[in-house]
Design a protein around this nucleic acid. Structure first.
Length: 949
DNA sequence: ATACCGCATGGCG
DNA sequence: CCGCCATGCGGTA
């Protein structure tokens, strides 16, 4: 199997392009890009996100413009196949005007006369093809974009030169269109799709080779029949639904193309058709226009030369001896060839039936597949359909469920359930005989191929792989090929990669390879795509297909849409996260550009920057607040100050006066309080202000930490992080900082030893440590709050003179006694919760199985999120560190004025909340009898005395 | 018990 | 609501 792009940028082509053109702005390496925009007019070239060819070739593998005859091709390809046009002009859609200005392909809007370049990825959304011929710019088209009322408009398409290149359509799968263009592109695509490159329509001559041949002889080499369907287009848009809606209108409404008219008159205004390419090979198949194009458009003749020229130019070799005419046969939906397929008194397939073959069954043969199918013969290959193997199909039952319409359209008619044996040749030329039959099913039929197991096994197919059916003309032999599943979650045959940009292993095998199985990827599912998606997890075996509809477009589409949204979200946060990366001290990073991304490369691991709080001071100057590691005081720094992860007052070179921890904090507690929420981070706490402030801070840190996490992920994973799709549970969104998400996908990459000091591992460790510290802090705060609550409760009770009703459950250290004193750090003891506990806070603090111990030690046990045994080794060490930090924090908080004494967190909410006593009780008992007043904690002045031994 | 066959069921578009 | 089809399931060999 050729893993190289069989379509256009075959490796040969790409290589040739690179070799032949000294202007190649880049090396052939995929990792070292020069940064020159092909657009000579570009003045705003920046490193922007590009995408990778499905072949895995660098997206810039296609060369810069070449001689005029190739310009179109080249530019299209370049545009289509790569994102090298990364200038703003490209993104803004003005690329054509700046780059294509001297190229052919310009047309004028029939309405306003505006020149529009027809045939590049940028312009594709800018015009629509008029039914009557010519184009209309989108502005004009929209004016009359009343589909139902104006059947004239629709059929958009690309200009002839574009339509000649079926490869461009896939671009929509990949092109990182600016969001604002998406809708437009979708619409355009819809139209384009509607005009649809459908090489593959009903094969009236399927079992009538002569008919096919005659047709072939009367048609252009690249001619392809137009389908009177709106469904036979690949729907690369991000929202297939739109496309489908459109197609429905297309089919059912006035937009329906009158194929017959087109065919007969040749000028029905329908432009070229485009072969829906297998998404897995979209990019590779730029030269696959052998599917042909029918361009009844008046300019077809003039375009044909271009087309052919383009094709030839793109092919690694001169036009193959064979012509893979993917001619569709003419039919108006009731062609005679299927007239014999009468079942139940009605035509076997009516026009609509044939025209409504689901896109997922569209054949998406790659050039390589076709070539290999045809071998060196002059056979004409007619791709019929393809189907992704379901678990059932690939299972041992040996029955391959055939899409009904496909079966009825392309397989011999059968009238008896027993069907008939069907001889099928596999990609290696081996012949198999399957029983083609059907089952009555709900007044319908369910077609199956029986006895496919040997073949399936022979081809080493599994669920998720795709079997393709094609036909050799004129002999009419059925050929069954296959395509190993893409590395991406293929999920569906149509639009397998609507968004996924993974192109590297898009075709791990194709069933038409004649090179034997050796080239088959033995574990196609284990491949990890660029986005980190582990297909194996998704589609491995039956489980992946188990949910039978999970592989349908819809669900996948939704999922992908979500992922796409996530990608956007992640991208944003990624950028933010980037801001947290700091070079190691005294390190000057070298800048490397990888696929459009600029990276600072450090010899040492970059460190996570100290999270800071950006603000604007009273004079309007942008500043940031950073907290000293040691004294926990907040210091004001210039906004542009880059801080290491560890920062202390002593590093305050910006404000020498405050470079000592002893210097008072500039920020008042109130200011800090105001400041912290300004982080725009979620504050869910309903606690008192004092508590809230700290919570906020924690939240802020958490948020930052999450960002840092992204950095971690980005660091460890392939860039760009924004394209990473999580294979984690849906709950784990990008940015999720849970322990699961911060781990590299299982099975991905080499295992990291515990002693590994790689960036990822170190970062993860840091992350864990930070996590622990945060939790320590939280816990401590809760403890303090709880204790305070108890104190107040005690006080209240004392005041109420009900002390005797309380039962001492446990000793509790006094947080008050050690305020501002490290030496007084309490050996807090938790009280076991007895009876009901309406106080959620206390509930939490009471859940510890540990009593009478330093609460910090029980932290890991209390943390649901953390498995106690998850890191038994370093846990205590981290906890010790955390403890130190916590103590410092306590000290800081306590000494930071009266506004936020940590021990004074009043739990203000909750009607049953305990009042806080300011009296330390020794040996007093809790009042647990009263369920409305859950037992309060008693305080033990003897903090060092554990209650439990 | 197992495999196969044929049909039924139900999710989903 | 309907049709498709993935899969379940009972009957049979």
């Amino acid at each position: 199997m050729s893993s190289s792009p069989p379509h256009l940028p075959t490796s040969t082509t790409a290589t040739t392009a690179n070799n032949n053109n000294n202007n190649t702005p880049c090396s052939s390496s995929s990792t070292a890009l020069s940064k020159k925009c092909f657009n000579s007019d570009c003045t705003d070239f920046k490193s922007r996100n590009g995408w990778r060819l499905r072949s895995g070739l660098p997206s810039f593998a296609i060369d810069a413009p070449r001689p005029e005859t190739e310009v179109l091709v080249t530019c299209h390809l370049v545009e289509i196949l790569n994102a090298y046009y990364e200038c703003s002009a490209y993104e803004e859609g003005s690329f054509c005007e700046t780059f294509h200005s001297r190229a052919s392909g310009w047309r004028c809007c029939e309405s306003c006369g505006k020149s529009v370049h027809c045939g590049c990825i940028v312009s594709i959304q800018a015009f629509t093809l008029l039914d009557a011929g010519g184009i209309a710019c989108m502005a004009c088209a929209r004016k009359s974009f009343v589909l139902e009322s104006n059947p004239q408009i629709l059929l958009t398409a690309t200009s002839a030169d574009v339509t000649s290149n079926p490869a461009w359509s896939p671009l929509f799968y990949h092109a990182p269109f600016p969001e604002r263009l998406k809708d437009l592109s979708v619409k355009s695509w819809s139209q384009l799709a509607g005009s649809g490159p459908v090489p593959w329509r009903q094969a009236p001559s399927l079992f009538n080779p002569s008919a096919a041949q005659s047709e072939l002889q009367t048609r252009m080499p690249y001619e392809v029949d137009r389908l009177d369907t709106g469904e036979r287009f690949s729907a690369p848009s991000l929202e297939k639904r739109k496309v489908e809606d459109f197609s429905e209108k297309f089919i059912n409404g006035n937009l329906r193309i009158r194929l017959q008219d087109i065919v007969e008159n040749g000028n029905a205004g329908i432009i070229g058709e485009e072969q829906p390419q297998p998404p897995s090979s979209l990019m590779e198949d730029a030269s696959g226009q052998q599917f042909g194009i029918t361009i009844p458009y008046k300019s077809i003749s003039e375009s044909n030369s271009q087309i052919e020229g383009s094709v030839n130019a793109l092919q690694p070799a001169p036009p193959p001896p064979f012509t893979k005419h993917f001619h569709g046969s003419l039919h108006n939906g009731v062609d005679s060839s299927v007239d014999g397929h009468i079942r139940n008194g009605k035509p076997r397939t009516d026009a609509r039936g044939r025209s409504q073959l689901l896109p997922r069954y569209w054949p998406r043969f790659t050039d390589g597949e076709l070539q290999q199918i045809s071998g060196n013969s002059n056979a004409v290959i007619k791709p019929l359909f393809e189907k992704m193997l379901s678990a059932s199909d690939a299972g041992r039952i040996g029955r391959l469920v055939l899409p009904k319409k496909c079966a009825e359209a392309y397989f011999p008619p059968i009238s008896q359930p027993e069907g008939l044996p069907l001889r099928v040749q596999d990609s290696k030329g081996k012949e198999w005989i399957f029983q083609f039959r059907f089952w009555p099913n709900n007044n319908s039929r369910m077609y199956v191929l029986e006895g496919v197991t040997p073949c399936i096994q022979n081809m080493q197919l599994q669920a998720g792989d795709i079997v393709t059916f094609s036909r050799l003309e004129p002999e009419g032999k059925l050929v069954m090929g296959f395509r190993k599943a893409t590395s991406a979650p293929p999920s569906d045959q149509d639009n397998v990669s609507e968004f996924n940009e993974d192109n590297e292993t898009s075709q791990t095998g194709n069933g038409v390879s004649t090179k034997g199985d050796a080239e088959l990827d033995p574990s196609p599912w284990s491949k990890v795509d660029k986005s980190g998606y582990i297909a194996k997890e998704v589609l491995e075996g039956k489980s992946s297909i188990r949910k039978r509809k999970s592989s349908t477009l819809g669900s996948k589409s939704k999922r992908l849409r979500i992922e796409n949204e996530d990608m956007i979200e992640l991208k944003l946060t990624w950028e933010e996260a980037q801001g947290l990366l700091r070079p190691p001290p005294d390190h000057v990073p070298s800048i490397v550009a990888i696929e459009g991304f600029e990276f600072e490369e450090y010899e040492d691991a970059p460190v996570l920057g100290k999270p800071t709080i950006f603000a604007t001071d009273n004079v309007g100057q942008k500043i940031q607040w950073v907290q000293c590691e040691d004294c926990l005081k907040w210091r004001k720094l210039p906004a542009n100050a880059l801080l290491p992860s560890k920062w202390a007052c002593s590093s305050n070179t910006w404000d020498p006066e405050r470079s000592l921890c002893s210097v008072a904090q500039e920020l008042t507690a109130e200011q800090l309080e105001d400041l912290l929420p300004s982080c725009n981070l979620v504050v869910t706490s309903k606690r008192s202000k004092d508590a809230k402030k700290d919570i906020d801070r924690v939240e802020a840190l958490e948020g930052l930490d999450t960002l840092a996490n992204l950095a971690i992920l980005g660091e460890g994973e392939a860039f760009p992080a924004s394209s990473q799709a999580t294979t984690k549970h849906p709950r784990h969104r990008p940015g999720c900082s849970c322990i699961v998400c911060i781990q590299p996908p299982s099975g991905k990459g080499p295992k990291h030893k515990q002693t590994c000091t790689c960036n990822v591992c170190q970062t993860v460790k840091r992350r864990f440590k930070t996590l622990m510290m945060k939790r320590e802090k939280k816990q401590s705060e809760k403890e303090a709050e709880t204790k305070q609550s108890e104190k107040e409760a005690e006080t209240t009770r004392k005041k109420q003179q009900e002390p005797s009703a309380e039962k001492l459950l446990d000793d509790e250290p006094s947080p008050c006694s050690n305020t501002g004193s490290e030496s007084g750090s309490p050996n807090k003891k938790k009280t076991a919760s007895e009876g009901s506990d309406d106080d959620p806070n206390r509930m939490k603090s009471s859940t510890s199985p540990f009593k009478g111990q330093i609460d910090l030690n029980i932290q890991p046990e209390r943390e649901d999120e953390l498995s106690p045994g998850s890191d038994s080794g370093g846990m205590m060490r981290m906890l010790q560190d955390a403890t130190e930090t916590y103590l410092r924090m306590q000290k800081f908080l306590s000494s930071d004025g009266d506004n936020n004494p940590s021990g004074n967190h009043m739990l203000s909410s909750g009607g049953t909340r305990e009042k806080v006593s300011d009296v330390i009780m020794l040996g007093s008992s809790h009042q647990d009898a009263d369920k409305d007043h859950p037992p309060a904690f008693s305080m033990n002045a003897s903090a060092s005395t554990p209650a439990t031994g």
